[in-house]
Design a protein around this nucleic acid. Structure first.
Lengths: 225, 225
DNA sequence: ACATTAATTAACGTATACATTAACTTCGGC
DNA sequence: GCCGAAGTTAATGTATACGTTAATTAATGT
């Protein structure tokens, strides 16, 4: 069944969005291969926009186009996770520092707190997927406020790349109540303009997230998600 | 005149490499627009590979594809420079830390020193372009040794993006002899495993490079290179 | 002369056609 | 029964064809 048209104007953009979401929500399976024609069929368009979208997604690390083997969805290895989390451990604390240096407007603090509340509410409901969404929204809000366009795009891509792994490990990890606290504290430090504190707190936060995840994946032998 | 074939296997890859170098060496002028057909002609191929390459280059920030206005080479604004240098100021010191933590093999130190010597020799000859090349090679060597593939790619793209601006300002800036010293010192710290020193030194190095360049561009009203 | 609208053009987005070539299959030899 | 070579298939890379639509020009009315 062809998937409904999407807002994105050109077919190439549609293909990009749809394919990316199919990869991220695990509809297209990691390590599996799909032919251009196959995907084109599925999206109800010709190979051209699919190819263009696939090239894009390849350069962002979601899949690999191999001449006779089709389009292969790349599994997420521990090495990938490590690389990405280590970079996020540098980049997000930098964002936190920047935001703290600028201070928060009322609206901005509101937005942060809205995400924190969403996280807490989701956790109360035991809705881990919602929690993960709110968590991601919080982090992206932080990064966007840093005011560096390229930083935002990079961080967004990294989060997208590890999205599958995060979701997959959601039920295996301990309840992230500690994480919620951290977020509250961070907002406080940002608000106070304590950039050193904010940077350090967020760095620790990222580092323990990394350790937790890598550990989890190793212990459960979940390489190549 | 069509440009000679290049090693890259597929025409799309060729187009990517050639277009990128034409942008970087200022053959395709910033702010100027070129039609797909025009570029295809120039490269002696059809629009298809040119389009695919252009999409790639657009996502890397080298140009912008606007429906009826052709492919526009993006000029480098002060904001771009600032964004990029600030990110490099985070990312490269991180690389320095990683490398220092691992220590240097003999080969690795040799490679570093080769680049330092190339920089010094170029400076003696007053060959600023060669100096800039060696400088870039040094930094890329550092980043690659950090062992994070994604980090290498990001940093490489950033250097490529500001390449034009670096070259353009080369003759305006003071002789970079201080910079050469810094590089020597850095190799020393990396070798000794002093990761904190290496990180700090390199951070300062990056920061002053940023300030120098931004200052230069502002003073000479060179926005949008 | 200027503005508004219609007609024209041409660049792009997309589909399709086609040649190339790697993968697979089949067949024959050992 | 297994290995290798020739033949076949099919997926890709690339060119090209084509319809759509924005920009431009022409035309008309005031």
């Amino acid at each position: 069944m062809a998937i409904a048209e999407r807002k994105g104007d050109t077919r190439t953009q549609q293909a990009y969005q749809i394919l990316k979401s199919l990869v991220m929500d695990n509809t297209l399976k990691p390590s599996a291969s799909y032919l251009e024609a196959e995907l084109a069929d599925r999206l109800g368009m010709s190979r051209t926009p699919v190819r263009e979208a696939a090239l894009q997604l390849e350069s962002e690390g979601f899949l690999s186009i191999r001449p006779r083997h089709g389009i292969t969805i790349l599994p997420i290895s521990i090495e990938d996770m490590t690389e990405i989390y280590e970079l996020l451990t540098e980049l997000e604390p930098y964002a936190a520092e920047r935001v703290a240096r600028n201070g928060l407007s009322d609206d901005q603090r509101e937005a942060f707190m809205a995400h924190v509340h969403a996280m807490e509410a989701a956790l109360d409901r035991n809705d881990l997927v919602q929690w993960a969404d709110a968590d991601e929204a919080f982090h992206m809000h932080l990064v966007r406020l840093a005011g560096n366009e390229r930083l935002s795009r990079m961080v967004a891509t990294f989060w997208d790349q590890v999205h599958r792994a995060r979701i997959a490990t959601l039920t295996l990890r301990p309840k992230p109540s500690r994480s919620n606290e951290d977020h509250r504290k961070l907002v406080d430090l940002l608000d106070k303009g304590d950039w050193q504190g904010a940077r350090q707190l967020h760095r620790d936060h990222r580092e323990s997230a990394k350790n937790m995840l890598v550990d989890l994946i190793t212990r459960h032998s979940l390489d190549h998600l």
